[in-house]
């Protein structure tokens, strides 16, 4: 049970002067329960890739499937597959449309043909997951909420489809540090409790380092690296910079300390790890 992409190629407007190659031979598998971060600069092919995973674009070449369902089949047949994959696009609050929050969240499950009882249960659960109180918000107009609440409502609309795989495209863009932290706490909880696979597209290397178990780096339509973040951030600092990316702030700080002669191990990529190391190191040094 997995999302598998085999040798996916994709070209926009093929055969015209405006043809643009977006993906060239991407092969990867995302297992149930994975927490994957996908990084790459703008135009590297990230958004094309997630649209392939969600069956929203047909590959020019290659094969994409979800839990064994071939995504190149007809509209009707891949509808079942779409139900397994939830995609939260950038600025998801811009897709809200219904008269009440309840109706908006129920849109997905109803489209998937769920019964009214199932839908109701899914809506309540999704609202609880994103921290929107049912009694307070269910009958409110989506357009009367604050920016942060709208974002959470839109995410609930995707969660209500109870996808096995959740793709999040820059979900924390524009949020302040506190909202950002709260958001990820909720996502990590959903990931752990329901075993939902998460594919996090982000520009924020700290988020990738802190939350993902696996990191995909994409550049010019090709998969550059596919390994645990610790390995990639420790080994390929220079290569990442060359493709317009960076390492997490903690890894950068670690590098500065290392250059000074502080023996920080190469595999430290989060602030918590660096703090733990420095505490033991300073104390050890104090004893000498």
């Amino acid at each position: 049970m997995a999302i598998t992409l085999e040798q996916i190629h994709y070209t926009y407007s093929p055969g015209t002067p405006f043809a643009r190659v977006a993906l060239q031979g991407v092969t990867l598998t995302i297992e149930k329960g994975d927490f994957v971060a996908l990084i790459g600069h703008t135009g590297s092919g990230k958004s094309t890739l997630i649209q392939q995973m969600g069956g929203l674009l047909q590959p020019s070449e290659g094969k994409a499937s979800v839990d064994g369902i071939d995504l190149s089949r007809k509209e009707k047949e891949i509808k079942a597959a779409r139900g397994k994959i939830g995609i939260v696009f950038q600025y998801p609050e811009h897709q809200l449309f219904a008269e009440t929050a309840y109706e908006d969240i129920a849109f997905g499950p109803r489209n998937l043909g769920r019964s009214p009882e199932e839908t109701d249960r899914a809506v309540r659960r999704a609202m609880a997951q994103v921290g929107l109180d049912f009694d307070t918000f269910a009958q409110r107009s989506p357009f009367r909420l604050s920016g942060g609440q709208m974002r959470r409502l839109a995410i609930a609309g995707v969660l209500a489809m109870e996808p096995a795989y959740l793709i999040l495209d820059e979900p924390s863009a524009g949020l302040d540090p506190r909202s950002r932290r709260l958001f990820f706490e909720q996502i990590v909880k959903s990931h752990k409790q329901q075993g939902m696979a998460i594919i996090l597209v982000t520009h924020n290397m700290d988020e990738a380092a802190r939350y993902a178990q696996r990191l995909l780096v994409i550049n010019e339509g090709k998969l550059l690296y596919d390994a645990p973040p610790r390995e990639i951030f420790a080994k390929y600092q220079k290569e990442l910079e060359e493709v317009g990316l960076a390492v997490p702030a903690a890894a950068r700080l670690a590098a500065v300390l290392r250059a000074r002669g502080v023996p920080v191990p190469a595999d430290i990529i989060t602030e918590a790890e660096l703090e733990k190391f420095l505490l033991t190191w300073v104390k050890k040094r104090g004893k000498k």
């Binding site: 509209e75 939830g86 998801p92 449309f97 997905g108 998937l112």
Partner: peptide, 28 residues
């Protein structure tokens, strides 16, 4: 694309259902 990912179907059905199915695009 966002609404398609939520299972929306824009083709098929009578004119009325088709118009209704456009709401999730037109309102946003």
């Amino acid at each position: 694309k966002a609404q398609t990912a939520r299972g929306a179907d824009f083709a098929g059905g009578s004119i009325l259902t088709r118009l209704k199915s456009l709401l999730p695009i037109l309102v946003p």
